[in-house]
Amino acid sequence: MSDNPDTRERGGPDEYDVADRGLVPGLASLLLFGVLAVTILNADFGTPAGLEAGDYGITHGIGFALFNIDLGAFAGSTEGFLAAFFIVAITLDVAIDGALYLAKRESDGSIVSAVGGAFSRGRKAGEGGD
């Protein structure tokens, strides 16, 4: 498989890249895992408390926390996240709108290139487009 983008297999597997460039990143990853493992095994995590589910289950508690509902048995172990919930909901809306904007086509089937069109449909820079 060539490194030339014009001759590289489209969307094909990139085992060549892993074999060619994987040694140093692999060693770095293993080294990081070793450092993390040593740190974890030598750490003191204190006394375990455990979750007291009370009258409701843990899933109920998560739901109560998400919507700032009376936390009951979990009152001391978490807080309300209603504002964060709305922010994440808006973020997801923005994300799906962004994905549709990036992926949409015109009714005649042509592609609307959201972030530049010089290379669309095989055209190169200087052969038209913007």
Binding site: G61, S77, T78, F81, V88, T91, A95, A99
Partner: peptide, 23 residues
Amino acid sequence: YYGDLTGQVFALFVIALAAAEVA
């Protein structure tokens, strides 16, 4: 381990943000 639900709620938020990132 520490009996605090906040971590689980945060995990849910991370899952939601990961979905947005993938989209």
